[in-house]
Structures are given as structure tokens and as C-alpha cells.
Write a protein that binds this DNA or RNA. Structure first.
Lengths: 338, 338
DNA sequence: TTGAAAGCGCTAACAC
DNA sequence: GTGTTAGCGCTTTCAA
């Protein structure tokens, strides 16, 4: 590695002052054409790149946004992160990404550092319990799908409506014994809207509601789901709170011998691009990932510019009717209600 | 937002000098217990967080590593990024992530800035053409799956062996008309090992080789693949260079009426966790994602510490035999070779 | 149109 | 044990 080239070296080679070089870099103030050329030649010759850190120290801005998600390895958060990154880049920001899955210690350590003005703002798509850091943080934050603090805006899709629509799609197609799977960890406390909706629908019909836990480890999750079929062989439909679980259930059901969708209907949740490519037959509730990212970035910009923001933005979801759902019975084929 | 609290404010409140506060923060040098307590109380009261940028300017290190991937929205690169991030975090680094898919301009702009010592090193899992920035970059870089420059180590899995194994798995199960799909874009020039292996295997058998392009847009890709079945109705096996394409082909084949695996066998490539969860029946070549990440981080650390590194690390892959492959014929069931 | 010098917030000699 | 001071590399008044 060469010695680090700095502004001063360029100034010296070009035979001008540091201030002039700085002006050339930033195209600020009056410059003679000749000076510009001299300086640029010197910069090129030395392969000079301004020290971003020094610039940042002066401007007190980093143009970096921190993103905290559970993990970028999962279709939903991977795609969300990609959308955020792309949109933020267009506005001149880079992103510092952290996966905090199941690791409050890491999230905390991470936050501690970011709070030292290493980032201009934060987009949080998860939160491990109630880290005190979030309460004291005094930099612009936007949360996705989770409530963090009264003055931190939340961008979410309409989980309650989506779950309701999913359950009703099943029921409209003849399902009577619907079981739900969801992430029940306490860390997920805010995210019970889907479960609440499921229970409300079941209750409205006077049917019992059963929720089976989705766990962090896929193998354990599969084992948990296996119990559905032994404990409730009468099950004729499953509403899974995410597509990965829905896929596991589909595989499990087929393995056990359920015919899908004739004997067992399945609907998932999220509807990412990846799922739609890998498992196009899966019915699911599609979250407006791209819109959510757009809104989050928009709100963050507003905060960065000290503009007022709504406390909450809720975006509509859409049911995708796939082959894991039966066809809707036609009117005349409908059995008379007793 | 409060006024920004700095070291000086803490020093003042605690009635000590800036140096002392700095010592307390960094636990360096001799400190009396009383002083430590005073200073920590002051820091807590002011909710002080050291300005990371100022620290960085002084230490000339950022403890940030830049990661450039095509996009984090895809299972392979999403999982790779997650692995990298996790491992780097354990070593005290944060990651600045950029998706450069199909956008040399963005990658270039991004690089330009990172070169300004905003990151201590770079892990490149893609490269758009031959950006001159890579040739002049003088910071530690490790490449994944792509050759960048003679002195930049490459971590890769054994693409040639993996593709060969995939084709041979098909042939061992009776396939005779194997078609290949791959990303043929010039940007992908380095990555033809899989195609070369496919062609070599076909040639060894005296069979014609056909490669169909996988495109950036899933819809166009599907259209491209559709032609396989009209132009080569005799096809009895497909080797797809990635699992997303394999899934599309599977869906397409079933839609058209091919029975899988009896009439048509399919094998993909990558074998990510996501694929294995969403489409467990898919046969595929599993890349050692986690090992690749580990090696990349290891090599980068070596470079950061000016230690010598190998120019190339090639990791073995593993074929996962799924239900999109026929069972292997037993010895005695094997037809006699003429 | 350009240069000199102060300062961004922190760390690390070097004194005391 | 603790304070003083000189930078880290850049930007930006303020002069010239």
C-alpha cells in the first residue's frame, strides 16, 4: 500500500494551497481554469481520494444510514434491505447493515456505537426487547412494523386486515378447521396482529383457534408443526404467518399424505419475490415491500430535515390466490346454509 | 434533538480535563476510582456518546468493511452477506453494504467514495465489468467468486467440479438430452466454469450442448426458458445454474405437462437455506456459503494485518439429491451396455 | 482568484 | 494521576 496521499500532497504538487485544492474538489468559489486543471492533474497523478472521515468530521454528517433487521438472509428482510439500500443510495446515503436476530447483546453494542454519530439516521426493522438505547437515542429513527417509542414513526402493512383476508379466503373455500402458525417469541410482542385477527375470525364463527409456534431453528419448527397433524388430524386449512413456514407445512403435509389443496389448504404470509419464484403455487398475503421501503426512506428524510412526520403509516396488503387454495365454489354450487 | 454533547462538556461537568475523560472512555493509563466515577456519572447524565468520526480520524481506522454484492434480495447473496456481517461483527467490524446489480455507475460511484478511507477493507462478491477503480484501489480487498486483479485473493467454490457432478448425477439416472441454463451476460464473464463443465461432459458423451440464457428479469427469464420446451421437446433433464431458475423451470415443466422427475429431471445450483426451506424437493449443488464467508473474512483480516495470503481458495461443493431426480438405477436393473 | 489559519471532536505524547 | 498541547485531514471564514 502506498503512503496515504492527502490534500496537502496534492496542493504541493500542484503548487497551490490546500484551500484551493479543497475548492476544486468541491467546485466552490472562484477558480481559474488553469488552476482547476493543474489541481486535477495532480489529483490524478497521485490517485488522490479525499479522506471521507475528515470531511465528515467537519460537516458533522456521514451520509450513512444504519439499518437493523433480524437477518438479511431471509427473503423478506433481504428484499426489504435491498429496497432500502437502493432508495437511500439514490438520495446520497450509504447503509450500514446489521442483523440482530436473536441477539440483543449485539444489537445493543451496535446501537451504542452508531449513536456516536457514525450514522445520520436509523431504520429499525426489528427490536430486541426494549433496549434502553432506543429510548435515549437522539437521532432520526424510523421503525418498520414495530413500535419503538412515541416519537418514532412506524411503517407497517396492514397485518390485521391481511390475516383476516387470509382466513376468510380459506373459509370461503370451505375450510372449517383452520390452524395458525406464528412466531410467538416474546421479542415479537408487537407483531401479534396476525394472530389476533386469526382468533377474531375463528371466534366470529364459533370455532376453536390453535396457534403453533414457529421457532428460530427450521428443524425445531418442523417438529413443532408436525404436532399439528397428530394433534389435529381434522385440520383442513393452515394460515402460516410467513411463507417459509408455509413451505415447511406444505412439504410436511404432502409427506404425511394430505392432498393439497383438496384435503388441506395452505396460505402463507409475506409474498416476497423470492417466494413467488421458488414456490409460485403458494397462496399468500403479499406485503407491499417496495412501498414500505419507500415510505420508510421518505419518513427518515423528513426527520433528517426536521420536518414533521405522521406517527404511523399503514399500507394495504393483497392476497395472492395460489394453487394451495381450492377454487372458489361458484354461487350455484354453494350448499344451502341450513 | 439536543445539542451535541462532546468530550469537553463531559470534562467540564466532571471538573476534569478532556484527556482524563478520554482515558476513562478508553480505560487507558492510571485513573483514580473517584475520577472514574465522577466522569462516568457526567457521561451518563449528559447521555454522552463519543463521536466515532473524530476517533476514526485520529486512529485512521474505521472498523468498517465494505461489501459489494449484486443484490441482497436474492437467497445466495442475502445469506452470504448475513454470514459475512456476522463474522465481521465478531471481529469488531461493521459493514457498509451495497447492491450493485446491473449498475456499473452505482458501483463505481460507491467505490470512489469508499476509497476515501471510509472503510478499512472491501469484500467484493461481484464486479461490473472492469471498473478502473479496482485496478487502482490500494486498500485490502478480497473477491468472492470473481477474479479482479492479480494481487486480490479470490474465494470460490469449485464451480467446475460442482457442475460436472450435477451433469453426471443426471446422466447416471438415465438423462440423455440435458439442457443447461445460465447467466450469460458479459458481466458474468468469469463465471463460465459451470457452463464449461457442462459442455465438457456433453462433449465427452458426444451429445450436443444447449445453454439457454437466464436474464435479469424473472419474466423474461421465464420466456427464455419456455423456448427450451418448444425447441427441444426431447429434453429429459435440465441443469440450471441457480436454484431460482431451477424453480422456474420446474414450474414451467409441470405447467406444460412434463412429469418430474420421471419425464424430466431437474437439478439446480446454490443450495441455500432459503431454497431448501421453500423448495426442499429440488436437487441442487450446495455451495459452502458459510465456509466461503469464513474464508473471505479470514483472508481480509490477513490483508489488513499485512500478512501474506494465497491468491485463491477453492472450496468443495456437495450435490444434494432431491426429488427432482429419479432414483439411481440399481446395479442389476442396469441395462447391459451394448 | 488565492492563501493563512482556525476549528471539527478526539487521542496521545509529554509535562507536572 | 491528571492536565496541556499538538495533531488527524479537511473546510471555511477572513484577508490579501
Amino acid at each position: 500500500m502506498n503512503k496515504k496521499i492527502k490534500l496537502e500532497d496534492v496542493a504541493e504538487l500542484a503548487g497551490v494551497s490546500k484551500a484551493t485544492v479543497s475548492r476544486v474538489i468541491n467546485r466552490r468559489g472562484y477558480l481559474s481554469q488553469k488552476t482547476i486543471e493543474k489541481v486535477e492533474a495532480a489529483m490524478a497523478e497521485l490517485n488522490y481520494h479525499p479522506n471521507v472521515i475528515a470531511q465528515q468530521l467537519h460537516t458533522q454528517r456521514t451520509n450513512v444510514i444504519g439499518i437493523i433487521v433480524p437477518t438479511v438472509a431471509t427473503p423478506f428482510f433481504g428484499e426489504l434491505t435491498a429496497e432500502l439500500e437502493q432508495r437511500l443510495f439514490k438520495r446520497g446515503y450509504k447503509v450500514l447493515v446489521s442483523g440482530a436476530l436473536n441477539n440483543p447483546g449485539k444489537e445493543r453494542q451496535y446501537l451504542q456505537q452508531l449513536l456516536g454519530r457514525q450514522v445520520d439516521g436509523l431504520i429499525i426493522a426489528t427490536h430486541n426487547a426494549d433496549l434502553p438505547e432506543y429510548q435515549h437515542a437522539n437521532l432520526p429513527i424510523v421503525a418498520i412494523d414495530r413500535f419503538l417509542r412515541a416519537d418514532i414513526p412506524v411503517v407497517a402493512s396492514d397485518n390485521y386486515a391481511g390475516a383476516t383476508a387470509a382466513c376468510e379466503a380459506l373459509i370461503a373455500r370451505g375450510a372449517r378447521h383452520i390452524i395458525h402458525t406464528d412466531d410467538l417469541s416474546p421479542l415479537n410482542a408487537q407483531d401479534t396482529a396476525r394472530q389476533r385477527a386469526y382468533e377474531a375470525v375463528m371466534q366470529a364463527h364459533g370455532w376453536p383457534a390453535y396457534t403453533y409456534p414457529s421457532l428460530l431453528d427450521p428443524v425445531q419448527t418442523r417438529a413443532s408443526f408436525q404436532r399439528i397433524f397428530t394433534e389435529h388430524p381434522e385440520v383442513d386449512a393452515i394460515f402460516a404467518s410467513n411463507d417459509l413456514d408455509a413451505a415447511t407445512l406444505l412439504d410436511l403435509a404432502v409427506e404425511i399424505g394430505y392432498a393439497v389443496p383438496t384435503q388441506l389448504q395452505i396460505i402463507g404470509y409475506d409474498g416476497t419475490q423470492t417466494t413467488q419464484r421458488l414456490l409460485p403455487q403458494l397462496a399468500t398475503v403479499v406485503q407491499p415491500l417496495s412501498e414500505m421501503a419507500a415510505q420508510a426512506v421518505e419518513l427518515l428524510e423528513a426527520k433528517l430535515q426536521q420536518r414533521a412526520t405522521p406517527t404511523e403509516v399503514v399500507l394495504p396488503v393483497q392476497v395472492k390466490f395460489g394453487r394451495t387454495l381450492r377454487p372458489l365454489p361458484t354461487k350455484k354450487a354453494l350448499p344451502k346454509q341450513k
